[in-house]
Amino acid sequence: MRMLINEPERVVGDALRGMAAAHPELLVDEEHRLIVRRDAPVPGKVGLVSGGGSGHEPLHGGFVGPGMLDAACPGEVFTSPVPDQMTRAAAAVDGGAGVLFVVKNYTGDVLNFDMAAELAEDDGVEVARVLVQDDVAVTDSLYTAGRRGTGGTLFVEKLAGAAAEAGAPLARVAAVARQASEASRSFGVALSSPTTPAKGGPTFDLPAGELELGIGIHGEPGRERRPVMTSAEIADFTVDALLADRMPTGPVLLLVNGMGATPLLELYGFNAEVRRVLAERRVEVARTLVGNYVTSLDMAGCSVTLCQVDEELLRLWDAPVSTPGLRWGR
């Protein structure tokens, strides 16, 4: 096993210690597995909390900071955090205006965030929840009932985070998050399997010369396997899958995302092909983000997310953000 780790069971804790050393603007609690912006709670501001299994970095811990999340709860690798983490996070970021939970649609995440919301409300914290289920590849999978939450989570966290930073009340922040979630569609492609530290090898078998279309961010099966395709062919297939599910009636935000082991050289080339297909389909792209943002450990591959925006959502996207994983305007 060639991994830059000490022991598999220490991977998440070691990463949290390293994150704390690199980002003094964050409060990182290794014992309770929390990442919180240092100035939390901000009086009168809605707090945003998200989280999920580790291995998808910079999602979610790398998106904690002004203009995005107030706290993130990292679970073990590909494993949901527990309700106690989320309840502690809600208490840490509640500035009196309530807390929004942003939840990816995976069974463990949904159950644990629901339980945490009940516990937080028992403690006097007003909680709203928004579910992200943007993956058009499959309905129901190893981890979900319904569609999986993937790249659209970034758009939901950024847009809702900007609304909260601007002082919007909880109902409005939740409405922005729901609008972004409903407007987002994603599709992923795997060129290799991820390697989990505990297993020390690939999580699934993908023969040489093949790729998986519609893969999930935990390595869940997609729609089909095919012989390796060119970047242009993958772009055609991926964009057509997205547009078949929802044809935008206005401009979109575009995320061309790497799955962890895909270099920017390849991602920018793939972005050129995605933009070609979108132009051919007469889809207007308002903003583009390219990079490894919602990953699957060391999986080689990519995903594409489209989020239809109006003037308000575009303004919220352009609003300043200052996190380890996303930063502009400050």
Rank of each mutant, 00 (worst) to 15 (best):
V228G: 06
S193Y: 13
T230M: 01
S181A: 15
T238L: 00
G201S: 14
V189N: 04
L242I: 07
L243V: 03
L253H: 03
M229A: 12
V239R: 01
A174G: 14
L211K: 07
S181M: 06
L206Q: 02
G222Y: 04
E224N: 03
M229L: 13
R246L: 08
S184R: 04
P207G: 08
A208V: 06
D236M: 11
D205S: 11
A183I: 03
P221R: 15
T196A: 12
P197D: 04
E233V: 02
L242M: 03
R178E: 15
T249H: 04
L242H: 04
L213I: 06
G214M: 02
V173Y: 12
G216S: 04
D245G: 05
P202G: 02
L242T: 01
P248D: 02
L242P: 09
L242G: 02
T196L: 14
L191Y: 14
P197L: 10
T238M: 09
A235V: 02
K199H: 12
A235W: 02
F237M: 11
G219R: 06
R178K: 14
P194I: 10
G200L: 09
V173H: 08
V228A: 11
L206G: 07
A232C: 10
T249Y: 01
A198V: 13
D240V: 08
L242W: 01
G188P: 11
G222N: 05
R172I: 10
S184M: 11
P227H: 14
G188S: 15
I234P: 13
A232M: 06
A208L: 10
D236V: 15
G209W: 02
E220V: 11
G214K: 04
S193T: 13
V239F: 00
E210Y: 15
P221L: 10
L253E: 01
V228M: 02
R172S: 13
P197Q: 07
H218T: 09
L211I: 15
P197G: 03
D205P: 05
